[in-house]
Structures are given as C-alpha cells and as structure tokens.
Amino acid sequence: MSPALFLKFVEVSFRKEIAYRFDYFVMILNGFIYVFVFTSLWRTVFAAGGGTFGGFTTKSIISYTVVAMVVRISFSMDDGLIPGRVRDGSVSVDLIRPVSFQLMNLAQSVGYSAFHLFARGLPIFVASAWLFGVRVPAEGLPAAIVSLVLAYLLLFLINFTTSLLAFWFVEIFPFTLLKYGLINLLAGGLLPMDFFPTSVRPLLSYLPFQHIFYSPSVILTGRVAPGNAPVILAEQAAWVAAFAVLSAVMWRAGRNKLVIQGG
C-alpha cells in the first residue's frame, strides 16, 4: 500500500468522525470525567498518607494520571468495524481489494485515533496542564515518542487480533468486553503498576498489557532513567512483533475459512 493511499484512508476515517458535532463536545467531557475522578482520588489518599506513596508524590501521581489518560483517549479505536464487516459479509469486498487488509485497517484506525488525539486528547491535556500544573520533561521525549508508536501498534494489534475472532464466533462482544476488563485493570491507563501488591508485579511484567499505557506514560513523565528506556522499548517491540505474527496467522486462517465455507 502506497503512503498516499494509506493517508487517504487515514483522512477518510478522520472525516467520518467529525460528522457528528454533538458527539464531539460530549466526548471531551467523557475524557475529562476520568481525569477528574482519579486526580481527586489520588489527592485524597495521598493527603491522608503523608504525600508520598510507591515512589510517587502527589504532584507526580497527578502528572502520571493526566498523561496516561490523554494517551488512553488518543488511542481510541473502533472495535466494531471488522466484526461488523464479517457479520454482514462485506469483508469479502475487502478481500478483493488490491490492498493489504491489515494496513487498511491500521490506516482507518490511525484516522480514528488522530481525531481523538486532536479533538479530545489535546484539549484535555492543555486544560489539565493548566489546572494541575502538569509538565512533561523534554529530555525523555525522543524515547517517549518511539514508545508511544510501539504502544499504539501493540494496542492496535491486540484489538485487530480480537476482532478477527469474528471469523469463528457469531458474537464477539464477550471477547471485547474481556479485553477491556484486562486493559482497564492491567494496562496502566487508570492505575499505575506501582500500586499493585509486590507479590503480583513480576506476573504483570510477563503480560503485554502494561506496555500499552504504563510504559509510554512513565517514559513521558520522566519516571524512567534515560538508560533504562531502551529495555522497555525492546520489550514493547517484542510484543508488537508477537502480535503481528499472531494476527497475520489468524487473518490467513480466517480468510481461508471465508473462501472455503463462504462465511
């Protein structure tokens, strides 16, 4: 797929999102609710506990919360796309198109997320930075950008892989729900991994989830020593590769199933 075509897909899906203005204003509010609830929560418990916990100060936990939340919002993706197309059979149109299905979906996802980044992530970040005095240190930025890209790919691939289950199951909502449950709990978008009991933390590091929001957020907020960032990036890249392979295998199997059994 040519970069120009990729960008065209990005643009189309970006534009699809703008179409409903009412939604737009509501969605900003939606993102802000989470920022507000968690900053309020951390302030309360940190104030009661003397102002520090698990390596965080009140100020740094609030920075983390805002940054992780903005990343989470900017990474919004449309889960219903592929399952919908599989269910109503229009995925066969995708099959006869001379473009890579994976890249086409990535392009659409990027367009979707770009809208959420500009329309929601940025306003929420600016407002929160002003309200809570959040600052992002500049020296970690290059590593953070790499980490964000890897995190985005990882989340995309996890979603993509889950969506592909639609080839085998009539109803994939349960899987989607399960995925959200795990991501909410284990990806660091709401709770930093540092708050988990020390007994379960080694277990978490064997799972891909914390590389979605936790890793880029700790790099962005400067909680990782610059020397340690490459280790995290390498782990992220390994997970991206693993899911890329898994999704490619599943896509191939799903496509064959469709071709042979007619859906």
Binding site: L182, L185, L191
Partner: peptide, 25 residues
Amino acid sequence: FVLVFAVTLFYAAQLASLFVVMSSF
C-alpha cells in the same frame, strides 16, 4: 454463556482494581 462469563470477569476486574487501590492505601 460466554457473555455471562465475560461480564462476570469484567466486573470482577473492576472490583480487583478497587482492591488494588485499597491494598495500597
């Protein structure tokens, strides 16, 4: 039945994150 299972786990995960917070604070 898969849905019942998934919904149960989803809310169990929510409850779990509550317990994570309470275990710390």
